[in-house]
Simulated scan of single mutants.
Amino acid sequence: MNHPQEMYQYHTWATYTILGRIQELPDSVLHQEVNSSFPTIAHALSHMYAVDQMWYLVLTGVSMPEALQMCMPRNEELYDSVEDYGQRYAELSEQYTTWFQDHIDLEQTILLDNPFAGIRDTSLAEIVFHLINHGTYHRGNISTMLRQLGHASIMNDYSLFWYAKPAID
């Protein structure tokens, strides 16, 4: 397994970890308004999911402007339950897993036309690392939102993942 793939596994594990914590709380927490980066935890989760989908499309050959146009409206698609988010993340994670199996050379570059920053040659690994960094940032937002709503969050640091993942022979 390569390092970007392991980091993606961490990203998936950390997302499921925070979803598991939210699932332990009253159902209302998902849609309870809070004065933070997002109006609700559901909004934060929808944003993370939309961006994960967008980067998947870019990795599979869709231009970034087209992928943004397809996925950014999904920021506003709020799901009713944590289970709904978990199901969607599981489906997307399976797509990424298949993608990783088909891409051995993650140092391969593509011409990324980022409407926010310009055009540059970008390796597939850089895109994967950005995706993971983006998720980490927003899981931190969700942890803060949970605290603002009077609930503890849960550790989902990469160093904890080292101990939580199954040993590889």
Rank of each mutant, 00 (worst) to 15 (best):
I18N: 05
I119E: 15
N133T: 09
V29F: 02
M72S: 14
P4L: 00
L124A: 09
Y10M: 00
T136H: 14
R139E: 11
D80G: 13
F161D: 02
T97Q: 15
R88Q: 13
I127C: 11
V62E: 13
T144N: 15
Q87G: 13
E77Q: 10
E33A: 08
R139L: 02
A44P: 11
E94I: 00
D52P: 02
G118D: 14
Y16Q: 11
D102F: 00
S63F: 08
Y85E: 07
I127T: 13
Q148S: 11
L78F: 04
Y56W: 09
Y49C: 07
L92S: 12
Y137E: 08
Q5V: 00
M54T: 06
E77D: 12
S63I: 02
E94S: 14
P73L: 03
S28C: 06
A67G: 07
E66F: 00
S37P: 04
I18R: 04
M72W: 03
I132S: 15
L25P: 10
L57D: 15
I127H: 10
Y158T: 02
S81Q: 02
V82D: 12
Q69M: 07
Y10F: 02
G20I: 02
L57S: 12
L57T: 06
T136P: 01
D80P: 03
C71Q: 10
M54L: 08
P39G: 12
E6T: 01
S93Y: 05
E33L: 04
H130M: 07
Y96P: 10
M155F: 07
L25S: 06
I154S: 14
